[in-house]
Design a protein around this nucleic acid. Structure first.
Lengths: 238, 238
DNA sequence: TGTGGAAAATGATAATTATCATATTTTTGG
DNA sequence: CCAAAAATATGATAATTATCATTTTCCACA
């Protein structure tokens, strides 16, 4: 087991446990049949680039398992991580629907399985099923709100506040392992690329949080010890 | 003339010169008739708040003329301007579609005329006309891309670079008056609230740009003298 | 058309953050 | 499991940006 894609990703969308998380949640059997016929299962190894900024995708990916990061390259070639995505999330639809090139690259930060749905099938489902379009729209609208929050943080908070905030966001997004560590493994550079700071600054501030016993780290494992105080530092109230 | 709303905003949507700019661009006559019956014309004076962050809107506004800013309040109560909107733009749909509270306040920076479309009519059009939904989705997807760019700028560029960038964006968005000034009047504080910096810092950097003859200012009037060098400072290549 | 209040400009200084250098630890791939 | 490479940690310093104080200018409105 585990060496066959059909184990990792069900062949038929109706069998997919993530369906209710995705934009495909309320499609009828007929639509699901059609989707299942057109989709192909794909896997990406940790570190592999799934989509390239500036390209024109020929389809969308529906993530089945694993974790990916969406990032843009800044002027000096530095990665800015915009968001993470995981099971149930749809990749590439933005570009197809706005008829623009891909606004950011996507790469796997864990081994990742996904279903690839070609452009034509994607648009067929959209045409046939207004509910699907509305699902996507709803997700896009939610994302717009999230990005507004990120913009406000970046513009107004200090690096220290943003770092604390992002540690909390990581926990809310990915949860914890049995040992209590954040269930995502990131390099300090990647953390810096989310926070929007220099890698050294992120490292230094992480060390400070450690000294103050707010967090504990061992290599890339990070454990949040005092979420309350962390929340205070982050200046978040919700 | 000018003292009657019917002069400022046509009574019937089919007569609206901005229709082709908006998400209503390819609606049929029947839909337009229905919309026209349900919409009401509203006007906002400069400075007036149109929507409040955290509220639940009961409809959407389609801007007919004037300019508005969308902003969020940060932890210290400081405004962060997320974007500007002008004729043809739809306000409030994000909240209705994601069933969340409004993610940011909107206020008029010029006298503004708009059509108000109640929630129920909005959803009726959505239900009846998949093309309309797709139009909105397309706009939302475009906006997601723009916000990704903003995030990357805020995270990676210096204040000086961002200021230069925003002056160029303002020109691209609002154009110039006959005298060559940016066709939008903003306080230094508002500029700072876009750039994501302290008001004094924005003022200081504007003064520097003046000294270097990149721009010229007289009160709130700003004229771009050397867009090429400004673009170089902003680190933009597209 | 003068005037009071707001906005803009500017200086001085403090705080934050970036950069560069180097040592140490961790991770990765054979 | 080990060695090389990559990542992390930390110090020293420079650059950027924020903050506070004060003066000058602008502008809305009586």
């Amino acid at each position: 087991m585990g060496n066959d894609h059909s184990v990792e990703v069900p062949n038929h969308c109706s069998m997919c446990g993530n369906r209710h998380l995705s934009a495909f949640k309320n499609l009828g059997d007929e639509d699901l049949d059609q989707l299942s016929e057109m989709k192909t299962c794909v896997s990406f190894k940790k570190g592999q680039v799934i989509m390239h900024e500036g390209a024109r995708p020929q389809g969308v990916y529906c993530l089945h398992s694993g974790k990916v990061k969406l990032y843009k390259l800044g002027a000096e070639g530095k990665e800015q991580i915009i968001r993470f995505m995981t099971k149930g999330d749809l990749l590439g639809y933005r570009s197809l629907l706005s008829e623009e090139t891909i606004s950011g690259s996507v790469s796997a930060i864990d081994d990742t399985y996904a279903c690839y749905i070609p452009k034509s099938s994607f648009f067929q489902v959209i045409q046939k099923n207004p509910k699907f379009t509305l699902n996507i729209l709803e997700k896009a609208c939610h994302e717009l709100g999230e990005m507004g929050k990120i913009i406000t943080s970046l513009a107004q908070k200090t690096v220290r506040e943003r770092l604390a905030e992002i540690l909390l966001i990581l926990r809310a997004t990915f949860g914890e392992t049995e040992e209590g560590n954040l269930d995502i493994s990131l390099t300090r550079e990647e953390i810096a690329n989310m926070v929007g700071t220099a890698t050294e600054s992120a490292i230094r501030l992480i060390s400070e949080l450690k000294e103050d016993s707010l967090i504990e780290t061992k290599g890339r494992k990070i454990k949040i010890l005092d979420a309350t105080r962390l929340r205070k530092i982050a200046n978040v109230f919700d």
